[in-house]
Write a protein that binds this DNA or RNA. Structure first.
Lengths: 375, 375
DNA sequence: ATAGTTTGTACAAACGTTTGAGCAAATATG
DNA sequence: CATATTTGCTCAAACGTTTGTACAAACTAT
């Protein structure tokens, strides 16, 4: 670990041997390097200043006031700490105090733009609160998710923020007996744990109603993974809106995965049906990309020949031709809120653990055509 | 921290009080919960089994073979460890062994798709090697970057992978005296440290030559942050290719930031010039998005009225109309290699620390028009 | 039977902190 | 001047590991 340093010292020693005449000067060099090499601890500071380790500790923790420490001692200790660039050993601190100030984050992915933004927002908020985040990736794989939890626990994280994968709540059911857990985006309705998600149901209702209001009757919906709770809610919203408008007969629900390929294939199939949909509601950004590809293949123009609405916001959707109308979730806010809830609970056992649904927003662009009612 | 558990126990006690008659049954419940509550340590296992802490430690570390431990002891200890769900306390281990098996990652952002993919690849590779990654975000801010380093050091990371921001190498110059450092994507040419980047220079040459071979003479280049080394290399490549074809007079280099806005504004300005470029080379994905927006504003059709090539790959570029020709970097491989180099160096002081440039690839789509030479 | 070897285990120190308790010396109070 | 209080500090234990050393007991060889 300190290889470079050792190398440097060994070089210094070589120089020393080769230059015995200039001993004094060399010693300065060696002293400097040694300062760096000698990782400062309370003990080294204690030895240098002549104060006990406990006094040094209290001074460096700013307890000089409450613990009656002389100004002289404070000054000497602070000076030495600065000189040797002291930084406390978190490991020892944590071991002693039983607080690591680390929180674990489990996400299914970190490249998917939605979760990328989520992780960015969590990392930054966690840091703001003086904690450190360790983010682990489950890859939508329950076994992997379990291994993430194990890894985080052995690092003694004080709490976990998770967008769980799979439908079996067992892991988290046990986990929440050990440390505080907050879900984000996804959650298990069976577990009465705090979560922050967006109102997927209403977002989906709004999208569908918008299409209906624009004259669409045959609206197909391409869903992602059916076990995902947000997906379920979106599907519910779609079906509800269709039913409410007496269009339940026309509802077409296909798809089984949040992927470009799923969007692509399902669109191909939709286009070969007897009754072609006039609008497609893609339940994720990736699915929408697949839809767009398939429509291009068929030479259909979005916003003219067929309409498209996508769930999830992504800056690139504004650069498509035409720009894609979509439902956006307050991703950043979700991350920040989840972090806040978790840390509040860590620091205060009695803090409330709410279950929040933030509102989604329709971002209107040009991918929805208005169909005039046939008279 | 153990609030939920305490609550559960307290509930259990309530039940106990209320049901003294069914004592036996209740005790089982309490025992179960207590098992969970009592965080297993070497000491607890030692007490339960009657073997000393050292024996327990050796057994659980698989040293029973080399340390002559009886099969009986191994069995008893393993059984108890399983029963109480023992998991070693990493903090104590690390404190004792001076190895944390944590590596720090410093990236300028984690939402930018390039770095999102990078972080995903690093996190996964780090985990494969049995380590844990802590990723910190510098937000392209040198002060923040310094605070990231401090945070990581206090967590006693064993090495750092960084895509540094800013142009001052001081921080990393000092850092590399303390722990191994590997740069990824960006690096400081003044520091002789290992890095993994892609051949930005050749990628840029190739892109420019392709445009020239397609008959373009007025090729504008929109750069990102001029202090960024990859940016510099790309600019060099562009200029080199232009010069080599005797087009140095035609070279137009604008821009100063990797952002959508920069791409947008610079394109607006380019279009208002006396000599309009027939092709634009955007040095990043975000810049390309801005370019596309500006071109749409002006009613110019990409691939017909004007050509566009972008640096960086992004799946959404295939869904633009037309799909955008681009230079792709092996992002995932860069992350994996950097991780491998770092961990090899951590585990083996004498491991080599190479400086790698992976090759870029041209992904040909439909955004480049062939201009026939005027005779 | 004696000496030598092997086997199985325990002891104790160390890693760097934090923190309650203790204790002289200095100061204040009567 | 004797007693009480305050001041400024130190001691020592503890957190959960790892690991070098020590040491009986059980064998083996003579």
């Amino acid at each position: 670990m300190y290889a470079c340093l050792r190398r440097k010292i060994s070089i210094a020693e070589d120089i020393l041997c080769a230059n015995l005449l200039h001993g004094a000067q060399i010693f300065v060099l060696l002293a400097e390097i040694t300062t760096l090499a000698m990782k400062a601890t309370l003990t080294t500071i204690s030895e240098k200043t002549g104060y006990s380790v406990s006094t040094v500790s209290r001074v460096l923790n700013g307890k000089s006031g409450t613990c009656r420490i002389s100004a002289k001692a404070v000054e000497a200790i602070m000076a030495e700490a600065r000189r040797c660039n002291y930084s406390p050993n978190s490991l020892a601190q944590s071991l002693r105090t039983n607080k690591t100030r680390i929180i674990g984050v489990i996400l299914p992915s970190v490249t998917n733009p939605f979760f990328a933004e989520m992780s960015g927002s969590i990392i930054s908020e966690v840091k703001n609160r003086g904690y450190t985040a360790i983010v682990a990736v489950s890859m939508e794989n329950e076994a992997e998710q379990e291994s993430c939890v194990a890894a985080l626990l052995s690092k003694k994280v004080e709490g976990i923020i998770a967008a769980p994968c799979g439908s079996n709540p067992r892991l988290f059911e046990e986990l929440c007996n050990v440390i505080p857990v907050v879900f984000v985006d996804r959650f298990y309705s069976g577990l009465n744990l705090p979560y922050v998600t967006s109102n997927n149901y209403m977002g989906s209702v709004n999208a569908t109603v918008m299409l209906i209001n624009n004259g669409h009757r045959n609206i197909a919906c391409i869903q992602g993974s059916p076990v995902s709770l947000p997906n379920k809610k979106r599907v519910e919203g779609y079906l509800k809106a269709m039913r409410q408008s007496g269009l339940e007969e026309n509802a077409v629900l296909v798809g089984d995965e949040f992927s470009v390929q799923c969007g692509y294939l399902e669109t191909k199939l939709l286009l070969s049906r007897d009754v072609r949909p006039t609008a497609i509601f893609a339940l994720s950004y990736t699915i929408a990309l697949g839809v767009m590809k398939a429509l291009q293949d068929s030479g259909l123009k979005i916003g003219e020949d067929i309409s498209l609405v996508s769930f999830d916001d992504n800056v690139s959707l504004d650069y498509m031709v035409p720009a894609i109308t979509r439902i956006s979730q307050p991703v950043e806010e979700m991350g920040k809120l989840a972090t806040k809830i978790l840390i509040d609970r860590i620091e205060n056992d009695t803090a409330k653990s709410p279950q929040l649904e933030l509102t989604t927003k329709v971002i209107v662009r040009e991918s929805v055509r208005t169909i005039l009612p046939a008279l």
